[in-house]
């Protein structure tokens, strides 16, 4: 089976999952107590107005007709209008998504470039000083709540030392870079706006570190243990018996096999972080999906909640697809199996 068949199979398998997600989000909006029509027109509106709104929204139709209409609307890329700010939900998401994406991407990037070498090092130098220090740091990362780190980092580096900027994606005095993607780093690079680049990078440091620490700890330990597993396998002994240098054994023969579990974690973390970095986004006033979702829930903003849910599901599934493809590249048994 070649790569194209492999990927298209995975793509086809996404369709039923997406359908399931739409059914769930649709039911969710009908199970939660509260009348969307009433919410839309406001508490003070007369019953007459609410009735008209219900008619307009199609809430009196049978459930399956309503679902069908919802699906049609969804396929046109219309996620409805936010009750909170009366703007199309799609527009809100388009503004929020790049902020979350940028933060998540940078955090995971930091994770991967530190965790892989550190994981290898601690596996090869097992029970040496580096391993013990890493173990303590990892334990600290896993067991300390994110908000505590966030507040501590802000307190030290922003309030006390003043080395790094505080909340937000970019200094208020700096205009956001011009560009379409909404990813400040990419946009400022493309438009050669070095001032915006510097400011947005500095703003990223603290939240990205905060977000990456937990995952860094998990990933390092995971790479360490899968490296240790692989280094004990027969084919590593064969490689040694064939006289291969230790460098080739670790980086070529062992690492590739040890990366499969790591890729899984990176993929899942991406899905988890992009809509789930609620605490970090709140503490650093990061205008991302997580904080948007919390605000929507507090306002019972159903269209926004549903839009977020579907978007996060899509991201999760895409991340999993990428993970699957990466598996195929790393391990031929998965590609051909």
């Amino acid at each position: 089976m070649n790569m194209v068949t492999f990927v298209s199979r995975r793509l086809v398998a996404m369709v039923p999952v997406l359908l399931g997600v739409t059914i769930l989000t649709f039911l969710l909006s009908h199970v939660i107590p509260g009348d969307p029509a009433r919410l839309l027109v406001g508490q003070k509106a007369s019953d007459e107005v609410v009735k008209r709104m219900r008619e307009e929204l199609g809430l009196n139709d049978p459930l399956h007709i309503q679902y069908w209409n919802y699906l049609k609307q969804l396929l046109r890329g219309d996620l409805g209008t936010s009750i909170r700010n009366r703007r199309p939900v799609v527009q809100d998401l388009a503004e929020r998504f790049p902020a979350s994406f940028e933060l998540t991407f940078v955090s995971l990037f930091i994770c991967v470039i530190i965790a892989i070498p550190l994981g290898i090092l601690t596996a090869v130098r097992r029970n040496h000083v580096v391993d013990h220090v890493t173990r303590v740091l990892a334990l600290l990362g896993v067991s300390t709540p994110v908000f505590w780190w966030g507040l501590l980092l802000l307190l030290i580096f922003y309030f006390r030392l003043g080395w790094l900027p505080g909340p937000g994606r970019i200094d208020l005095a700096v205009p956001p870079p011009a560009g379409r993607t909404g990813l400040y780093i990419l946009d400022s690079l493309l438009s050669r706006d070095w001032r915006a680049l510097g400011s947005s990078l500095r703003h990223l440091v603290l939240p990205a570190f905060c977000l990456s620490y937990v995952y860094l700890a998990i990933m390092t330990r995971m790479i360490r243990s899968s490296m240790l597993d692989v280094l004990n396998l027969d084919y590593i002994r064969t490689a040694r018996a064939n006289g291969l240098p230790e460098r080739a054994i670790i980086f070529r023969h062992a690492l590739r096999n040890a990366l499969v579990p790591t890729v899984t974690i990176v993929g899942l973390s991406f899905g988890e972080l992009i809509g789930g970095a609620i605490l970090t986004e709140t503490i650093f006033a990061w205008p991302g999906l997580g904080s948007y979702m919390v605000d929507s829930v507090l306002f019972l903003d159903f269209p926004a909640i549903m839009g977020c849910t579907i978007l996060v599901c899509l991201i999760y599934m895409t991340a999993n697809l990428v993970v699957d493809i990466a598996y195929g590249f790393l391990d031929p048994r998965i590609r051909w199996g």
């Binding site: 027969d234 084919y235 002994r237 064969t238 490689a239 018996a241 590739r256 096999n257 790393l330 048994r333």
Partner: peptide
């Protein structure tokens, strides 16, 4: 070695 099945790198 004894186990040819596991003595070569699978990837």
């Amino acid at each position: 070695f004894q186990e040819p099945m596991s003595s070569l790198n699978p990837v």
